[in-house]
Simulated assay, not measured.
Amino acid sequence: MPPSSPRPNTIARFPWWLLAIALIGLVTLWAIVADEGYSEIFDVLRKGVVTTLWVTFVAFGLAGLLGLVIALARTSGNPWLSQIATFYVEIIRGIPMLVALFYVAFVGAPAMVAAANWLLTPLIQPSWIEPLTVRNFDFTWRAIVALTICYSAFIAEIFRAGIEAVDRGQIEAARSLGLGRWHTFRFIVAPQALRTILPPLGNDFVSMIKDSALVSALGVQDITQLGKVYSSSTFKFFETYNVVAFLYLTMTISLSLFVRWLEQRLKQSDMR
């Protein structure tokens, strides 16, 4: 009779870290519900959750589209497109996020407004429309543009890695069967690359939620900015930043658990 395989150590495999996080979250949630001071802080900060999620979702969606274009340019085989895309990726990845945020907000925004007025000159000169001013460029959208530019470089590398992970033999076989470049990408490359890039894309989305706190430097009314204003006026720094951390952790840990679940599902589907 073959020896039975050792049973896994259930205690060692139990996610105690998740239990500890859940207990901390329950204690904080209880304080928010039971304590009047924490409840007031939560009522103030919850308005910033919508702004944080809005900035994150819009910026990540735009960064994903721009990153895909850059990744396709890098893998296109055209040396000029590849060189331009590589230049963009290396430059953007080397600039700190906060510096890029200030540059877009205070240098890029006036330049874009000036360019828009130049393009609209035929309509502005007959006084059909008023010329745009920098005030028309909302700071929230300046923050979104900055996050889009910065994250597109990182997402482009994720897309590129996923595309290059597809076996070249499959691509050559598809081309030999008469499939064009677009159909090869759509039916052969994209489905396989998607399975590779989904987990790192999820991790980047979690990172963008945290980096969205930088938009508070522009006065955007997100969680961090509202917490900074409230704590400065009430001097309740400990209570306020406890709630700020709780809100960010709720969003990031929930998404991290979803990414882990997605990775497990992808592994299980690969084993079938």
Results as ranks from 00 to 15, higher is better:
164 E>K: 07
51 T>Q: 05
163 I>V: 07
37 G>S: 10
214 L>D: 02
49 V>Y: 01
233 S>T: 14
131 P>A: 04
147 L>R: 04
193 A>K: 01
190 A>D: 09
141 W>V: 11
122 P>K: 03
215 V>H: 08
198 L>T: 01
13 R>C: 08
248 Y>P: 08
222 D>E: 14
226 L>G: 01
25 G>D: 05
199 P>G: 11
141 W>T: 06
81 L>V: 11
272 R>P: 07
16 W>S: 06
103 Y>C: 10
164 E>C: 01
103 Y>N: 12
119 L>T: 15
86 T>M: 10
223 I>Q: 07
243 V>E: 04
5 S>R: 15
25 G>A: 13
70 I>P: 02
236 K>M: 14
227 G>D: 03
174 A>S: 12
22 A>Y: 03
173 A>V: 08
39 S>V: 02
205 F>S: 00
59 A>L: 03
259 V>H: 06
166 V>E: 06
84 I>D: 04
164 E>M: 01
204 D>K: 10
159 F>V: 07
149 I>L: 13
202 G>F: 00
81 L>M: 14
46 R>E: 05
259 V>T: 08
39 S>P: 02
116 A>T: 11
107 V>P: 09
217 A>Y: 04
267 K>V: 12
88 Y>G: 01
195 R>E: 13
239 E>V: 06
106 F>G: 08
173 A>G: 10
69 V>G: 02
92 I>A: 09
64 G>I: 00
200 P>V: 05
201 L>T: 13
45 L>Q: 06
222 D>L: 03
120 L>Y: 00
47 K>R: 15
73 A>H: 09
48 G>A: 09
219 G>T: 05
272 R>T: 14
58 V>S: 08
60 F>H: 03
79 P>C: 09
199 P>Y: 06
183 H>N: 10
238 F>L: 13
157 E>A: 02
171 I>C: 04
216 S>A: 08
272 R>W: 05
240 T>Y: 05
210 K>H: 02
258 F>W: 12
111 A>I: 14
14 F>W: 12
83 Q>N: 09
198 L>M: 10
117 N>L: 08
125 Q>C: 09
14 F>E: 02
71 A>F: 00
185 F>N: 08
196 T>A: 15
109 A>R: 06
166 V>P: 08
13 R>Q: 14
31 A>W: 14
233 S>A: 13
213 A>M: 04
75 T>N: 11
27 V>Q: 05
77 G>F: 10
233 S>K: 14
101 L>R: 01
247 L>Q: 01
9 N>T: 03
72 L>Q: 07
157 E>D: 06
66 L>E: 03
166 V>K: 06
229 V>W: 12
219 G>C: 11
207 S>L: 12
232 S>N: 12
